[in-house]
């Protein structure tokens, strides 16, 4: 078991983003949450047409502008300047959340504090009484997107697994997560709990189970 751990090399955040990007099919309408998932936008393959939607009212979002092309009236959900691809569209918040809540997005990619084996998601608040609570559009995406992918490191900075039987943090949505991309492995959320799709190099399933502290079905 110790040899498995010494050879193990977790995926970097960029490698996680590349893995997600590779799994997004041509033509998909995708919302990318703020934070770590923003890396996915930079990893999308150029040979596929994928429509990125942003909650503040645009679809067909393009890459970051050059330093001389910044327009502060054209921003993303993280309030950073972006561009619009040819064919892109702008709309108001009513239309944007009609898209998000009404089942018109194929995939939402969100960060998380915890994901439970029944697909429950906790990603907007911890139990820290000093933290300012903020939820944004996460609860709408959780109920509204056809698939919710979570991108997160599997362990907290203190080594506690974020894959849990039941979330201890306040919930964002019930049973909404379909897949989890972590630095250790990619897992599907199934009727039987977490199920392995792919392991990071040098890791075996038993070591993963031990580190995650949760049951994981073999692929």
């Amino acid at each position: 078991m110790s040899s498995a751990a010494t050879d193990f090399k977790p995926w970097t955040r960029i490698e996680m983003a590349q893995r997600i990007a590779a799994d997004i099919p041509e033509g998909a309408v995708v919302n990318i949450g703020i934070g770590m998932p923003e890396l996915v936008a930079d990893c999308l393959p150029e040979d596929k047409e994928i429509l990125l939607q942003s909650e503040n009212g645009l679809i067909g979002m393009g890459p970051k502008p050059g330093p001389n092309a910044i327009d502060w009236d054209l921003i993303n959900a993280g309030k950073q300047p972006v561009t619009l691809l040819p064919g892109g569209a702008i709309f108001d918040h009513v239309t944007s959340f009609t898209m998000m809540r009404g089942g018109h997005l194929d995939i939402a990619i969100l960060g998380a504090f915890q994901v439970a084996e029944n697909g429950d998601l906790a990603n907007w608040a911890t139990n820290d009484p000093n933290a300012i609570p903020a939820v944004g559009g996460a609860m709408d995406l959780a109920v509204g997107a056809r698939q919710v992918f979570v991108m997160m490191e599997m362990l907290t900075k203190t080594g506690v697994s974020k894959l849990v039987q039941r979330c201890s943090y306040p919930l964002t949505g019930l049973g909404c997560v379909s897949r989890v991309y972590t630095d250790h492995a990619v897992l599907d959320v199934t009727e039987a709990g977490f199920s392995l799709r792919q392991l990071a190099p040098g890791l075996d399933l038993d070591t993963l189970r031990q580190r995650a502290g949760i049951a994981i079905q073999a692929p």
């Binding site: 503040n56 009212g57 645009l58 009236d73 054209l74 921003i75 619009l84 709309f91 108001d92 918040h93």
Partner: peptide, 11 residues
């Protein structure tokens, strides 16, 4: 409106 400055204005 102008670009994503539209957001909540109409509603």
């Amino acid at each position: 409106y102008r670009k994503t400055a539209r957001n909540f204005g109409p509603v």
